[in-house]
Amino acid sequence: MKLMRCPLNGERNISEFVCGGEVKAMPDPDKASDADWGRYLFFEDNPDGEIVEWWLHAPSSYWFIARRDTRTEAVLETMTVQEWRERQGTVGSGQAQGQSADSQAHGAQGTNG
């Protein structure tokens, strides 16, 4: 049973996690054509190599980002959403209102599911 390192909770059995799929940047809906939008919704890169994904630690409802190698299944790195956004340089308007993305990524201790 694989181990996954959650940035908040530390190393845990992967059964505590849910994969949220590849991190995809949303095109501007006002500018994108219908075909572009369809590609954004329904096509995946499916890389043979490194992929960046959303992962959820289910018991704490905590979202974070993982870089994974699809060839070896090795998890190369996990980081907070905040850190990922900083690397992308997309930390911006939302921050002006002062909420750290990290505290947003963590929801209240959730119920089952």
Binding site: N9, R12, N13, S15, E16, H57, A58, P59, S60, Q109, G110, T111, N112
Partner: peptide
């Protein structure tokens, strides 16, 4: 529960948010 709760791994004041009997627990 799949988390090691013995004193060496889970010391005084430690908190674990995990799954117990397939139900989320603190």
């Amino acid at each position: 529960c799949g988390v090691d709760l013995r004193p060496a791994a889970f010391a005084s004041g430690a908190v674990a948010q995990t799954s117990l009997a397939r139900s989320n627990a603190i």
